[in-house]
Each structure stands twice: as C-alpha cells, then as structure tokens.
Design a protein around this nucleic acid. Structure first.
Lengths: 103, 103
DNA sequence: ACTATACAACTAGGAACGTCGACATGTAAA
DNA sequence: TTTACATGTCGACGTTCCTAGTTGTATAGT
C-alpha cells in the first residue's frame, strides 16, 4: 500500500476535484451537452432551454467556470461561455495516465 | 445550440455521474491513491491509515463501489477492494471522445 | 440623465450529504 | 457452542449544497 494518505494530494489531483464535482451534477451535464463544438452561449440562451431559474443557471455556470470546465468573456451586456476543451483533455489525460499506472 | 437539454441525458453520461461524484471527494481520492497497481486492500487496512472512523470509511467505499470505480470480494471475514481500471478507462475514454468532438 | 436589459452577488429555507457511535451480521478460531 | 474479529447497517447530529427571490452593477439605447 502506498503511504501517501496523510500527505497532501498531488497537485494534479487537487485541481481535479472541482472538475469532478462540477461534472457530477445532472443539470450541469445538460448545460455542457448544449454546446456545439466551438460554440459560445450566454446565460439567457441557456436559461431559455433550462427548467431552472436564471439565478440558478448562473450559479451552476459559476461552478463550471470555477472548475475550469467553462471559460467566459463579457461582450457588451452579455457574458458568453464556452467549453475549455484543452483544459478538460489535460484533466482527463492526467487521470487516464494514473489509472494506467504510468504515474 | 444543441436542443437535447429537455431530453434524457445520453446513457453514457448517466452512468458517468456516479463516477464523477465518487471522484469529487478528497477522502475518496486519498483512498484511491493508496492502491498500488493491481493491489487489493481491505477495510481494516484503509481505516488504519485514514483519519476517519471505520463506519465512515465503509460508507465511502460503498460509494466508490456503487460508482464502479472499485470492485470488491469477500474472502473469509474480510472484504477486499481493488480498482476497476478497465471501467475507469472506459469512462474517461467516453468523455475524452466527447470533448474532442467525435461524438 | 433616464430607462430597460443582462448578469452577478447575497440571503434564507429546505434537501442532501458526511460523520460517528451503537448495534447487527457473518465468519473463523478456541 | 462460545468467543473474538471483520465488516455492514441504522439513527442522530451538524454541515454543505441546491434553489429561488431580491438587490446591486454595468452597459445600451432613448
């Protein structure tokens, strides 16, 4: 058995927690599945097709942004969100490498 | 925008929720990091190096097992757990494929 | 300057989760 | 059969999370 339980979690894994928590909620999964490849959506568009209120949608988008899964940019009145595919692939790659035993 | 928000989540994603939730907790991450490649550990061994009570460790192991990340087998008095690397790689592969836009 | 719009931030109630101690189950040994 | 041990389960408590409503901030248009 590895004896690293009492030590700090590897830095790779620490930033991964937020991603896993973000992806663990069905509402947030549904939101992510809305995006076409490369597409950007704002809060109003997502709220329009959601069953949740605007403030709740905004709350979930904040969790997704804080986890790094989504990035955002304010243009005029609206905030546009898009999936950070590079970050997601990095995260998934790290875990995949660990599972394969290469770490 | 894709219009599948109101529809059911793809079956691939539905089973993924449990995995993401399971991996989103730091205690459960620490437990997973204990395993050497191919190693099996029982509840007592994990409790010994944990800061949590035995019943709480058992609770987290149940979540990890229900998600499919861990598998278990009872031999005599003890229950031995091991990481289902094949399942984890399947899950990560599905998400990676989606992020790459191939789905 | 004023109004309307789009979003973020804060608040509070209710639901869900994490934790522990005590009890129950099942197995092996004496 | 009795005893000891390994693990699972249940109840209770405190904490965290989800959700909606309200308020605040910045921008666009009149």
């Amino acid at each position: 058995m590895k004896d690293n339980y009492r030590n700090t979690i590897p830095e790779n894994w620490r930033s991964l927690s937020k991603v896993f928590i973000a992806l663990g909620d069905e509402h947030r999964q549904r939101m992510l599945l809305l995006f076409e490849p490369g597409e950007r959506l704002n809060v109003g568009q997502i709220t329009a097709v959601s069953t949740l209120s605007r403030s709740t949608v905004s709350h979930h988008l904040k969790i997704l942004r804080d986890s790094g899964v989504l990035r955002s940019e304010k243009i005029g009145k609206e905030v546009w969100f898009w999936i950070d595919r590079h970050w997601l692939l990095t995260v998934l790659g790290n875990v995949t490498d660990y599972v394969r035993g290469s770490t």
